[in-house]
Amino acid sequence: MQMRSDIQLTALIRAMKDVVIPAIDPANRLAIEQSQLVLGMLALMQKQLPMQFRFDRDELSRLLRTADRLAEACAAEPGLSETIRALADVQQPARQRFAAATVDPSELYGDVVGLREAIGALVTRAGDAASPALMSQIERHVLDLSREQLLRDRALMAPQGWEPGLPAVETLLEAVR
Rank of each mutant, 00 (worst) to 15 (best):
P167D: 03
L150P: 01
R54L: 09
L44M: 07
V169H: 05
Q92Y: 13
A73T: 04
M51G: 05
S61H: 06
R62H: 12
L108T: 13
A99N: 10
L87Y: 00
A101P: 00
D18H: 14
D111P: 03
E72M: 05
D89Q: 13
E82P: 02
R116M: 08
F55I: 01
P167C: 06
S136W: 04
L9A: 05
P50Q: 00
A118R: 14
G40H: 11
S5T: 13
Q46N: 11
A99G: 10
S5L: 15
V142D: 01
D68T: 04
A76D: 09
G120K: 03
N28M: 06
A31D: 06
H141W: 10
G165M: 02
D18M: 14
D58W: 07
L108V: 14
R85I: 02
P50C: 04
M41H: 09
R65D: 09
D6A: 15
V103S: 13
R65H: 09
P105K: 05
T171V: 08
P26C: 05
E107W: 14
E174Q: 09
P22V: 05
M1N: 07
A175R: 07
D68K: 01
G127C: 04
D128C: 10
A168T: 00
R4V: 10
R57N: 02
M51N: 07
F55A: 05
L172D: 00
Q96R: 14
D18Y: 08
S136Y: 08
L172G: 06
R57C: 02
D6Q: 13
E117G: 09
L64S: 00
A15F: 11
R29P: 00
A130M: 01
R29N: 04
Q46M: 10
A31M: 11
A94M: 15
A11N: 13
Q52S: 12
A27E: 08
R97L: 15
Q92M: 15
A11G: 14
Q149R: 04
T171F: 06
L39F: 06
R62T: 05
M16W: 04
P50T: 00
R147M: 12
A168E: 07
S106K: 10
Q91E: 13
A94I: 05
L63G: 03
M157N: 11
A133I: 08
Q137K: 06
E174K: 11
L37T: 00
A101I: 03
P50H: 01
I13G: 00
P78V: 09
G79W: 09
G79L: 15
I24C: 01
L173P: 00
D18N: 15
V38N: 02
S146I: 07
Q36W: 06
E174W: 06
M51A: 08
Q160C: 13
E174Y: 04
S136R: 10
R65I: 05
D111K: 12
D111E: 11
I24G: 01
P167K: 03
A27C: 07
L156P: 02
L44K: 07
A31R: 04
D104Y: 05
A27Y: 03
T171I: 00
D128H: 13
P132Y: 04
R62M: 12
